[in-house]
Amino acid sequence: LKGYACRHCFTTTSKDWHHGGRENILLCTDCRIHFKKYGELP
């Protein structure tokens, strides 16, 4: 998807986009997986 950027690491290239984190922000796949695993963003 074009025009998306992770609100945590600011990458614009991700296989998928997810809403997550404490504020339900837009996250890339890597940040979301880390959040689900550790309960915090990298």
Rank of each mutant, 00 (worst) to 15 (best):
L1G: 14
L1C: 15
L1V: 15
L1A: 15
L1F: 14
L1S: 13
L1E: 14
K2N: 12
K2D: 13
K2A: 09
K2Y: 02
K2R: 08
G3D: 14
G3L: 06
G3W: 03
G3V: 06
G3K: 08
G3T: 10
G3E: 06
Y4D: 12
Y4E: 09
Y4K: 07
Y4N: 15
A5S: 13
A5N: 09
A5F: 15
A5G: 14
A5W: 14
A5E: 14
A5T: 14
C6Q: 00
C6A: 00
C6R: 00
C6S: 00
C6M: 00
C6E: 01
R7I: 07
R7P: 04
R7Q: 14
R7N: 09
R7W: 07
R7E: 15
H8N: 15
H8A: 07
H8Y: 05
H8G: 06
H8K: 03
H8P: 00
H8F: 03
C9D: 01
C9S: 03
C9T: 02
C9I: 03
C9F: 01
C9A: 02
C9H: 01
F10T: 10
F10W: 11
F10A: 15
T11S: 10
T11L: 03
T11I: 06
T11D: 04
T11A: 09
T11V: 07
T11Q: 04
T12I: 15
T12G: 04
T12D: 08
T12H: 02
T12Q: 08
T12L: 03
T13S: 11
T13M: 07
T13R: 14
T13Y: 06
T13H: 12
T13I: 04
T13L: 06
T13A: 11
S14M: 02
S14D: 11
S14K: 11
K15H: 12
K15E: 13
D16T: 03
D16W: 01
D16N: 04
D16M: 02
D16L: 02
D16K: 08
W17T: 06
W17C: 04
W17G: 08
W17E: 07
W17P: 08
W17D: 07
W17K: 05
H18V: 12
H18I: 11
H18K: 15
H18G: 15
H18N: 09
H18Y: 10
H18R: 07
H18W: 06
H19K: 12
H19N: 14
H19S: 13
H19Q: 13
H19D: 06
H19P: 12
H19W: 06
G20H: 06
G20M: 06
G20K: 03
G20L: 04
G20D: 15
G20A: 08
G20C: 10
G21M: 04
G21N: 01
G21D: 05
G21R: 03
G21E: 08
G21P: 05
R22H: 06
R22A: 14
R22Q: 14
R22N: 13
R22I: 08
E23W: 04
E23H: 07
E23Y: 01
E23A: 09
E23V: 03
E23N: 10
N24E: 10
N24R: 08
N24D: 12
N24C: 03
N24H: 10
N24P: 05
N24A: 08
I25H: 08
I25Q: 10
I25P: 08
I25K: 07
I25T: 12
I25V: 13
L26K: 05
L26Q: 03
L26E: 08
L26S: 03
L26T: 12
L27F: 02
L27A: 02
L27Y: 04
L27M: 06
L27K: 01
L27D: 01
C28L: 00
C28K: 00
C28E: 01
C28H: 00
C28F: 00
T29M: 07
T29E: 10
T29D: 08
T29L: 10
T29S: 11
T29A: 11
D30E: 11
D30W: 03
D30K: 10
D30A: 09
D30R: 08
D30F: 03
D30Q: 11
D30G: 12
C31G: 00
C31F: 09
C31M: 00
C31W: 00
C31T: 00
C31R: 00
C31S: 00
R32N: 11
R32V: 08
R32D: 13
R32E: 12
R32F: 14
R32L: 11
R32T: 10
R32C: 09
I33P: 02
I33C: 15
I33D: 15
I33S: 14
H34N: 06
H34T: 06
H34A: 12
H34I: 02
H34D: 04
F35G: 04
F35D: 09
F35P: 02
F35L: 11
F35A: 10
F35T: 06
K36W: 08
K36N: 15
K36Q: 15
K36D: 14
K36A: 15
K37G: 07
K37N: 10
K37L: 07
K37Y: 08
K37S: 11
K37T: 12
Y38I: 04
Y38K: 13
Y38W: 11
Y38R: 10
Y38T: 15
Y38P: 06
Y38Q: 11
G39Q: 10
G39K: 14
G39T: 04
E40F: 02
E40M: 07
E40W: 05
E40S: 11
E40L: 09
E40V: 12
E40A: 11
E40R: 08
E40I: 10
L41V: 05
L41C: 06
L41S: 03
L41H: 02
L41I: 02
L41T: 12
L41A: 04
L41R: 03
L41K: 04
P42R: 01
P42E: 04
P42W: 02
